[in-house]
C-alpha cells in the first residue's frame, strides 16, 4: 500500500482465511479466469466487483467447488482454506461446502416449510442432538437472518410463500444454520427492492462478526457500503485488490478507475 490512508484495524489484524494462487478456470475452450491471486481475510466482507462476464461469479464458485457440478468446467491452481488445499483429492467437496456456505443471486427456498428450509442443513450434517436442539438452531438462524420476527408465527408455512426479500433472508438464514466458516454471496440483492437490499446489507454487516463473507455485486455503492476489501475483476483478470476505501478513492489501475467512475463496464 503506497498511500497514506489509514486502513480499518479489524481488517489488517485478521488472519488469511482463503488464499488463492495462480487460479485458472476454463469452460471448455474458454479461459474464464486468468491467473488470479487473492487472499481473503477472516471476519471481513470482501466484495468482488466488475462488469458482467468478467469471471467474478465463476471465481466465487471456485471457492466452494460449486464448479464441480458443471461438467465442462476445469480449475487449475491452488486455493487454500486455512492452509489446506481444497482441490486436493482427499478433500470431500461436500464437507467443504458445509464449511463454505453459499447464497445465490435468485432466492431459492426449497418447496418445504420455513422450518424445514432452515433445518435442512443441520439435519444433513447431524448438528442437532434432538428436536429441542433443532428448534433452537432454527430460531437462532432465523434471528441471525433478521427474519425471525416476521416468520415466527408461521414456521410451518411454505418458504416459497414469502416475499422476495424475505425469501433471500431465509436463504441466508438457511446458509448460516450449517455454521459455515465462510459465506459466499453471489449478487444476493440483485432481485430485491431497495428496502430489502438495505435489510440484507445490514445483515451482512452483522454476519461479519462470525464469518468471513465474500460478496459478488454489480452495485459499486453496495460494495462500498458493506465491504472492507474489494477486488476488481476485468475480462477474467484480477485487476486490483485492496482495501475498499483505497479502491474507491484512489485506485492504482487505470481500468479500475474507469470502471468505478462509470467509463467502462
Amino acid at each position: 500500500m503506497n498511500d497514506m490512508r489509514i486502513v480499518r484495524k479489524d481488517v489488517d489484524m485478521n488472519d488469511t482465511k482463503i488464499s488463492a494462487k495462480g487460479v485458472q478456470v476454463y469452460y471448455g475452450d474458454t479461459h474464464a479466469i486468468k491467473d488470479v491471486d487473492v487472499e481473503i481475510k477472516d471476519k471481513t466482507v470482501t466484495a468482488f466487483i466488475g462488469p458482467s462476464g468478467c469471471g467474478k461469479s465463476t471465481f466465487l464458485r471456485c471457492l466452494n467447488r460449486m464448479n464441480d457440478t458443471i461438467d465442462i468446467c476445469r480449475v487449475e491452481g491452488k486455493i487454500e482454506l486455512d492452509g489446506e488445499d481444497i482441490y486436493d483429492k482427499r478433500v470431500d467437496p461436500v464437507q467443504l461446502r458445509a464449511k463454505v456456505g453459499m447464497v445465490f443471486q435468485k432466492p431459492n427456498p426449497f418447496p418445504k416449510s420455513i422450518y424445514d428450509n432452515i433445518a435442512y442443513g443441520p439435519r444433513i450434517h447431524g448438528l442437532a442432538k434432538n428436536k429441542a436442539d433443532l428448534d433452537e438452531i432454527v430460531e437462532k438462524s432465523l434471528r441471525r437472518g433478521a427474519i425471525w420476527d416476521e416468520v415466527k408465527d408461521r414456521l410451518h408455512a411454505p418458504g416459497t410463500g414469502l416475499s422476495g426479500g424475505q425469501q433471500q433472508r431465509l436463504c441466508i438464514a438457511r446458509a448460516v444454520a450449517t455454521e459455515p466458516e465462510v459465506l459466499l454471496m453471489d449478487e444476493p440483492c440483485s432481485a430485491l427492492d431497495p428496502i430489502a437490499t438495505l435489510q440484507v446489507e445490514e445483515l451482512i454487516d452483522e454476519l461479519r462478526e462470525n464469518f468471513s463473507v465474500v460478496i459478488v455485486t454489480h452495485s459499486m455503492q453496495q460494495a462500498a457500503r458493506v465491504s472492507q476489501k474489494t477486488a476488481f475483476f476485468h475480462l477474467g483478470n484480477l485487476v486490483e485488490y485492496g482495501d475498499t476505501e483505497q479502491i474507491f478513492t484512489n485506485p492504482k489501475d487505470e481500468r479500475t478507475e474507469s470502471y468505478i467512475t462509470g467509463r467502462i463496464g
Partner: peptide
C-alpha cells in the same frame, strides 16, 4: 426442477443423493 434448487442444496453441503431425495424428488 430449477437448477437453483439443486445448487441451493449442494451449496449447503448436501450430497447428490441427499439433494435428489430431499429436494428434487419432493419438488
Amino acid at each position: 426442477v430449477p437448477q437453483a434448487m439443486r445448487d441451493g442444496s449442494l451449496g449447503l453441503g448436501a450430497t447428490k443423493s441427499e439433494t435428489v431425495k430431499q429436494v428434487v424428488l419432493p419438488a
